[in-house]
Design a protein around this nucleic acid. Structure first.
Lengths: 145, 145
DNA sequence: CAATTTAACTTGCAAAAGGAAAGTGACAAG
DNA sequence: CTTGTCACTTTCCTTTTGCAAGTTAAATTG
């Protein structure tokens, strides 16, 4: 996709080199908010990604420095995936998408409380998810060394 | 794309029904930040969208209630496109993408001032773009009546 | 220990989406 | 009226995705 078009100077276009496809964003969501870590966890998401696309997108995220893989010391066939610090810098984008999607789609009555909580304290929400992710990541990476 | 998969309950997944492709996001950028209004304006963006994809995406945005078309009273062959209020609700997402893209890609020295300005006052930036867009849209829609 | 299962991919084929360029119909200009 | 412009539309080819089966290495079972 990066080879698709000459890269323009606009930051959104650059951002889209990484994010301009649905599957990548869903994987980021799973990593950031759903605690999915193993390959098979992502397969379990309800959107039904194929193994081929999942493999491709995880590799892209790794190569692009947005995700990292910590081999599982208890089972060498598998590894846990985590967002890097650069990957975590996308949390604000993802949070705004949640807010927009919630506001537009779900029953306003049911979502009012949740929406108010997240949008009322974006920075707090982001910081919480970030810190939890980093803590889990560091532990997983240490177990490998 | 909406028919692609059973729609999940996750707001991000719903958001991606609208936003899960690169071209749509680039068009939203053009509408929101670059003042592009006419069909040919979007063709002029450096990413080089084809007329087929542009037509398709503009129609999707209209059908989805995110964009509206005001016929040009001076030339019946063309119309001006604008974001609706729902479309403008995506500004926070786009702004966060700009911030992320700027931070990650461009020379930090050159972008430090711009980045600081936008991220330092997200709400102010969003409000400014929103109000300008609405003002221009209302004028264009009135000229039609 | 061998057989079976599991986990993460990989492959093959069909369908869908996108790219490039030419074509079409309606409107505008001279 | 002829020619040019504008917004699409069509055609053909390439790329990506969807679906399902296949492969390899590691783990588990008996």
């Amino acid at each position: 996709m990066a080879a698709h078009r000459e890269r323009s100077r606009c930051p959104i276009a650059y951002c889209l080199d990484v994010l301009g496809d649905r599957w990548t964003l869903l994987i980021l969501r799973d990593l950031a908010f759903k605690g999915r870590r193993y390959f098979r966890d992502f397969l379990g998401a309800s959107e039904g990604i194929s193994t081929k696309i999942l493999t491709d997108r995880l590799q892209r995220l790794e190569r692009g420095g947005l995700a990292v893989k910590a081999p599982d010391p208890t089972d060498r066939r598998r590894a846990k995936y985590f967002l890097t610090d650069d990957g975590l810098d996308l949390l604000p984008v993802l949070i705004e998408m949640i807010i927009w999607g919630t506001h537009r789609h779900l029953d306003p009555e049911l979502s009012a409380e949740r929406l108010a909580r997240v949008s009322g304290d974006r920075a707090g929400t982001i910081r919480r998810y970030r810190e939890e992710h980093i803590a889990e990541r560091e532990i997983a990476l240490q177990e490998v060394s």
